[in-house]
Design a protein around this nucleic acid. Structure first.
Lengths: 161, 161
DNA sequence: GCATCCGCTGGGCAATCTGTTCAGCGGTAC
DNA sequence: GTACCGCTGAACAGATTGCCCAGCGGATGC
């Protein structure tokens, strides 16, 4: 659960050059290949590294519009709404939150006009009382984890074991 | 920009078993290795596949609390605020949006108590007028793209070329 | 109609990496 | 003092990669 400096460097290296391979990593980090391999295994079984799936860009797929919808759910309909939203491909993420809205929903669409279609499909469901939508314009900081990894590595054990 | 059925299957396969390799993919898909390789190259240069970086779980790193902050920015201070937020590791994502709030900010923290520290650091900056925060409780649909890829593949050219 | 272009096939090549195992060597904890 | 744990450095066979080639078929353009 806590990662040390070496773990951090492994993750950063992997993020910068995903095709790098264990051997080359061990060379650059100045440790034995077995060490890198063991660290990686540990990071994966710890769940720190979930996987290496391809990072797909919805915009390049033809969905350049991103929006967030805040949904208010009718009491007791939560499970149904989740199941419904899970079937909509344009729903990239669904979160339940504190506050007035009950759920936060990340959407993509082919265009602003198409967004209307997506929203209609999302909210066209019984359990949803109200929805309010904001469109994303820019993304000054795209989803990232590396700075957090670096911080966690600094705060972890100094550097050695 | 438009992907066909084979592209879709490649991406899905890669998402399910990232370590699979081009050769094994070509076997499972029933096409020549060169074809898979060419498709992958194209998908990467198209930007559809951004990369294969490790997917790190903030929770496993010790940051189990996720929150969204809506920020109102003082006129003309946008750039400064962005630069400021980019330096905060706990800021995983920053978006500018339409609507009353000006920016939407995805945060993580070590605990609910720690979230206060993070928020203080985030909003402790001149250009930010007001901030409202919602804490994420559950994640019924974790960030995903595969359903979208499948839909895009269906809508693309039938199956062949 | 005919030539050209493009994508896929199926083969082969050397070079490289992987997964795995081993013994040895500290440093730490008990 | 002893046992445990992590790292090192090396070895091995097996598999994969990157790269090349010629041939084939359909679609495009003239």
């Amino acid at each position: 659960m806590a990662i040390d400096h070496l773990d951090g460097r492994i993750i950063v290296l992997l993020a910068e050059e995903p095709r790098i391979g264990v051997l080359e990593m061990s060379r650059r980090l100045g440790v034995a290949r077995g060490t890198v391999q063991a660290r990686l295994d540990r990071l994966r079984s710890n769940g720190v590294i979930r996987g290496f799936g391809p990072q797909v860009d919805p915009a390049a797929l033809g969905y350049p519009v991103t929006a967030f919808a805040t949904l208010q759910i009718r009491q007791g309909q939560g499970a149904d709404v989740r199941a419904h939203l899970a079937t909509v491909p344009e729903v990239l993420e669904l979160l339940t939150t504190t506050g007035s809205g009950d759920m936060l929903c990340r959407l993509v669409a082919r265009s602003n006009a198409d967004l209307q279609r997506v929203i209609d499909r999302v909210v066209g469901f019984d359990g949803i009382v109200r929805a309010s939508t904001t469109i994303v314009m820019e993304t000054p900081v795209p989803l990232r984890v590396i700075p957090l990894v670096e911080q966690a590595a600094r705060e972890g054990r100094p550097a050695g074991a």
